[in-house]
């Protein structure tokens, strides 16, 4: 008798699996209303001439044609953004990796250093940090005062079109702590036996790094690379607050252009077309990283779900 009720319970346990749909129901609604719907609508908008004050009017490919044939600012912004991404993302990740490797050398006070390095990441893309950057790199700001101590001529960090983009990128690299913490967590998970095996096999430090550490860390590097890239392509706050896209639009990042077109000039159809181009670029870059990943990432298990 007892075993029968137990068996009944087991079958109802199996049957009750569908209740999972009820638990994920909030997400299904949220996904449809706040993500999928806007996603599709923005594609539709991109083929329309449309603003808040005007009803959408279908114009076919006109927005896209204008973008590619008439809009010089579009090309300029695209180029600026690519340079920004190419400096900021590898800069941040390489720095994060190097520091994580050093902190992983069985040193004391790791927690202290980790906390210190992580601090800037907490304040991340806030307006307060952008304001700090304005003061640090002002003509007579802290950085130039420091340079003058070494009798180096002051550099116009934010006022010179050749330098401003690097100054903005540096703000991103300054936040390397978030990636570093991830790399550290990944390094901790590498089993000690592997290092011992490498030692037994007579591998030197450099060999061990390239044959043990780096391969086992690649999934985390991979994930970080994609997420940082997606973020960097959309960077907005630093360009908006620190430099307002200037001087001479040298920091006119894509995010800033999108905001201006959509919410300042109210050309929402045009901005939607721009946002779709950004989307396609991000997807293409992600696909590139994914495609190349079998050559450089290593997964212990297949991560089956």
């Amino acid at each position: 008798m007892k075993s029968l009720t137990l068996r009944n319970k087991k079958t109802s346990w199996k049957r009750s699996q569908n209740i999972g749909l009820l638990y994920i129901a909030p997400w299904i609604i949220g996904f449809l209303v706040f993500q999928l719907y806007p996603f599709i609508v923005s594609l539709i908008y991109s083929f329309a001439d449309f603003s808040i004050i005007k009803t959408p009017e279908f114009v076919g490919l006109k927005n896209y044609i204008n973008l590619f044939t008439k809009d010089r600012l579009f090309y300029h912004s695209l180029k600026t953004t690519f340079i920004y991404v190419l400096i900021a993302v590898p800069g941040k990740l390489i720095f994060a990796l190097i520091i994580a490797l050093i902190l992983n050398m069985k040193l004391k006070y790791i927690n202290f250093y980790r906390t210190i390095y992580y601090m800037p990441s907490i304040l991340g893309g806030s307006v307060a940090v952008s304001i700090l950057w304005r003061f640090l790199f002002a003509r007579n700001g802290l950085v130039n005062i420091l340079l003058s101590k070494f009798s180096i001529a002051p550099i116009d960090w934010l006022g010179s079109p050749d330098v401003a983009l690097y100054t903005i990128s540096l703000l991103k690299v300054w936040q390397f702590g978030s990636s570093m913490v991830l790399f550290l967590a990944g390094l901790k998970q590498i089993p000690g036996e592997l290092y011992e095996a490498a030692k037994v096999d007579g591998a030197g430090k450099i060999r061990t790094f390239f044959s043990v550490t780096l391969p086992l860390l690649t999934p985390i590097i991979f994930f970080n690379l994609i997420m940082q890239m997606v973020n960097a392509f959309q960077e907005f706050t630093s360009a908006f607050v620190v430099t307002q896209g200037g001087p001479l639009r040298s920091t006119y990042l894509y995010g800033l252009m999108l905001y201006e077109q959509g919410f300042r000039f109210l050309k929402m159809g045009y901005a939607s077309a721009q946002s779709w181009i950004l989307f396609i670029i991000i997807m293409a870059m992600t696909a590139l990283v994914f495609k190349s990943s079998p050559y450089w990432t290593y997964y212990d298990d297949e991560g089956d779900f």
Binding site: F34, Q35, V230, Q234, G262, F279, M283
Partner: peptide, 14 residues
């Protein structure tokens, strides 16, 4: 990986 900037305008209208 869905960029926020792609959905911001329709969201705004919604």
């Amino acid at each position: 990986m869905l960029p926020e900037s792609v959905i911001i305008i329709p969201r705004y209208m919604l």
